[in-house]
Design a protein around this nucleic acid. Structure first.
Lengths: 127, 127
DNA sequence: CAATGTCGCTTGCTTATTGCAAGTGACACC
DNA sequence: GGTGTCACTTGCAATAAGCAAGCGACATTG
C-alpha cells in the first residue's frame, strides 16, 4: 500500500494550524461561539454575512477537526447546537491577539464586548 | 459620489485581521521573515512549497497592507529583500499562540527554533 | 386543514482564487 | 556565445467561494 498522503503542507506547527483554521471564515465562527452563539441562524446573522453553504461546510470541517461539537437540543424536528470543545476554546488566545493587533494598527474598528480580551478558554466550556 | 465600498466584511477587529492575513500562506511568509529569511528564493525554499505566483502575490499584498517593506540590496540587476515593519513584527504573538495551540493538540509537529516562542516583536526589527 | 412561516440546511451555477508548469529579463560567469 | 541564477510573470486547469433558489420537517395561523 502506498502511504496515505498527509493533508498537511508540512509538520511545522504554524502551518498545521493554518491548515485547520487558516481561512477567512473559520475563526469568525469560533469568535461567535466565544460570544455565546450556538445555532446555525446565530452564525448566519453575524455582520460579516457568511454564505450559507460555506457556513455548513465550515461547521462540518470544524467538527471533523475536533474544534467544535454538535449536539441536539430538541427532537421533532431534530435541531442541533454547536459548542466549542477544549481544543476550540483554546483558540481564544489567538483570537485575542488578532484583536489586539488590529486595535493597535487600525483605529476604525469596534471594541469587543466587555470581558472578551480578559476571558480564558476554560470560561467558554459548558461542562 | 457613491461611498467607496469597504474592502472589509465588517469593522470587527477579528474579521479585519482575517481580511488581511486570513489565508493559508501570508502567515507562513511572516513566519519565515521572523526566522530571518529575507529573499524571494528563501521563501520559495520553505518546506511548504509555496507556488511562485502566489508568493509574488502575497508579498505584494503584505506590502500594500504595511506588514512588510521591500528594499533594494543591490543594483544591476536590482534585487530586493523583504523586511517586517513594526506592524508585521507585531504579528509574532499571534504566530506564537498558533504554535502553542498546535503543540498542545498535535504531538506530531516540529519544535520551533530555539527562542522563537520567547522572542518579542522588537527583536525582529533591524533598524 | 390548507396556507404560510421558520429553521437548517442542500443544490446549481457563476465567478474568483489556487496551484502547476513553463517562460522571461537582467545580469554574472566561464 | 552558452549556461546559470534570481526574481519574477504568464497561461491554463482545477478547486473553492459566493449568490440565489429550493427543500424537508415541522409549528402556527386563519
Amino acid at each position: 500500500m502506498k502511504p496515505e498522503a498527509s493533508p498537511y503542507r508540512s509538520s511545522c506547527p504554524l502551518s498545521k494550524a493554518l491548515d485547520l483554521v487558516g481561512d477567512k471564515w473559520s475563526l469568525v465562527i469560533v469568535r461567535d461561539m466565544c460570544l455565546g452563539k450556538k445555532r446555525y441562524g446565530d452564525f448566519q446573522s453575524s455582520p460579516e454575512g457568511i454564505p450559507t453553504n460555506i457556513l455548513a461546510n465550515r461547521l462540518r470541517q470544524l467538527e471533523e477537526n475536533g474544534i467544535i461539537k454538535k449536539q441536539a437540543y430538541q427532537d421533532k424536528p431534530v435541531r442541533h447546537e454547536y459548542l466549542l470543545t477544549a481544543k476550540g476554546a483554546d483558540l481564544l488566545p489567538i483570537l485575542q491577539q488578532l484583536v489586539l493587533w488590529t486595535q493597535k494598527y487600525d483605529a476604525d474598528c469596534w471594541t469587543p464586548p466587555a470581558g472578551f480580551l480578559t476571558a480564558k478558554p476554560e470560561d467558554l466550556l459548558v461542562d
